[in-house]
C-alpha cells in the first residue's frame, strides 16, 4: 500500500494504518490558503488599501497590477483588494459562526437523541429528515426571503441581513451535523464501557461528556470542516441570486455585482470566484486530513 493519504483512505475496507497520513502538498497549500484568508479577515485593515466601500472615480475598472490598486478596481471604482479583504471577513465570520453554533446545537441534539432513544429520538430523527428533505439552498432561500423580508419602503439593514443569513445557515447545518453525531453516538453508546459506566451509577450527562463526546468528536470535526466549505458555497449562491448579503460586501456579493461587467473587467468575476473556490477546496483538504488522522486511533484497536 502506498503512503499516499488519498489512496489509503479510500479503500472500502478499513485498512490498518501504521503510518501517519502523509502531509501532501495539497495539505500544505490548503493550510497556507486558510491561514492567509484568516489573516486577511482578522488583520486585513493594516494593509494600505483604500476603504472597500469608497469608490475612486479616476480609476474605473482598471486591471490588476495597477500602481495604486494592486488587484484593480471594479467598474464602479471600488478597490478589488480592499473588497476581497472585507469579503474574507464577512465570509469567514458568517461561515464559521454558522458552523460552530449549528454544529454545536446539532451535535447536542444528535448525541442526546442517540443516548436517550425512545420518543425523543423518534421526533428528532423525523425533524432531521424533514429538514434534509428540502435541499440546502432551497431551504436557506426560503428562510432568508421570509426572515429578511424587505421592499422599497423598508429595506432590511445590512446587520439584519447578516444575522438572518447566519440564522438560516445554522438551521441548515443543524440536521446535517446532527445526523452525523447521532449515527456516530449510536455506535459508541452501545459499547461495553458505556454500559460499565452506567452500571457503576454514573449520571447520564457525565457518560455523554466523558465517554461518548470524545469518541464522537472526530467525526463531527471532520464533517464540520466540510460544512464550512458548503456554507461558503450556499452563501455565495444566495448572494448570486440577489438575496444574500448585498452591495459587494461578501465574495458572493462581489460576484453578483461583477457579473454584469464580465466583458469590461473580468477580474471582477474571476478573483472572487477563485477566492471562494480555493477556500472551499482548502477546507475540504483540511477536513479530509483531520478525518484520516483521527481515524487512525480506532483502526489500531
Amino acid at each position: 500500500m502506498p503512503e499516499n493519504s488519498l489512496s489509503s483512505t479510500e479503500t472500502a475496507e478499513p485498512v490498518i494504518k501504521t503510518k501517519k497520513p502523509r502531509k501532501t502538498i495539497g495539505f500544505y497549500l490548503a493550510s497556507a490558503w486558510i491561514s492567509l484568508v484568516m489573516f486577511l479577515a482578522l488583520f486585513g485593515w493594516v494593509l494600505p488599501t483604500p476603504q472597500w466601500d469608497e469608490a475612486s472615480y479616476e480609476n474605473l475598472g482598471v486591471a490588476p497590477f495597477h500602481p495604486s490598486h494592486i488587484l484593480g478596481t471594479t467598474n464602479d471604482g471600488y478597490d478589488m483588494m480592499a473588497s476581497i479583504v472585507n469579503g474574507a471577513r464577512i465570509s469567514v465570520i458568517v461561515s464559521l459562526v454558522a458552523v460552530l453554533i449549528g454544529g454545536g446545537i446539532g451535535s447536542f441534539i444528535g448525541i442526546t437523541a442517540a443516548y436517550f432513544r425512545g420518543k425523543y429520538d423518534f421526533a428528532v430523527t423525523m425533524i432531521f429528515n424533514i429538514m434534509l428533505s428540502i435541499p440546502n439552498l432551497v431551504l436557506s432561500l426560503a428562510l432568508l426571503s421570509v426572515l429578511a423580508y424587505s421592499d422599497e419602503n423598508n429595506p432590511a439593514s445590512m446587520t439584519r441581513r447578516v444575522v438572518v443569513l447566519i440564522i438560516s445557515l445554522i438551521i441548515v447545518i443543524i440536521p446535517i451535523l446532527g445526523r452525523i453525531a447521532r449515527g456516530s453516538a449510536l455506535q459508541w453508546g452501545s459499547r461495553e464501557f458505556v454500559l460499565a459506566s452506567k452500571s457503576m451509577g454514573s449520571k447520564n450527562f457525565f457518560i455523554i461528556r466523558k465517554h461518548i463526546l470524545p469518541n464522537v468528536a472526530p467525526a463531527i470535526l471532520a464533517i464540520g470542516f466540510l460544512a464550512v466549505g458548503s456554507v461558503i458555497i450556499v452563501e455565495g449562491s444566495l448572494a448570486l441570486l440577489g438575496i444574500g448579503i448585498p452591495g459587494g460586501a461578501s465574495w458572493g456579493s462581489m460576484l453578483a455585482n461583477g457579473r454584469g461587467n464580465i466583458e469590461y473587467s473580468p477580474h471582477e468575476v474571476y478573483l472572487p470566484a477563485l477566492c471562494i473556490a480555493f477556500t472551499v477546496i482548502s477546507f475540504n483538504w483540511f477536513g479530509d486530513y483531520v478525518r484520516v488522522k483521527l481515524d487512525k486511533r480506532e483502526s489500531k484497536i
Partner: peptide
C-alpha cells in the same frame, strides 16, 4: 496516473458550480 487523477478529482469535487459557470462563460 492514479495519484494525479485522485488529487485533481479531490480538488475539483469541491469546486463550486457557480464559480465554474462564471469562469467558463468568461
Amino acid at each position: 496516473f492514479d495519484r494525479i487523477t485522485s488529487t485533481v478529482m479531490f480538488t475539483t469535487v469541491s469546486f463550486p458550480s457557480f464559480a465554474l459557470a462564471l469562469i467558463f462563460s468568461l
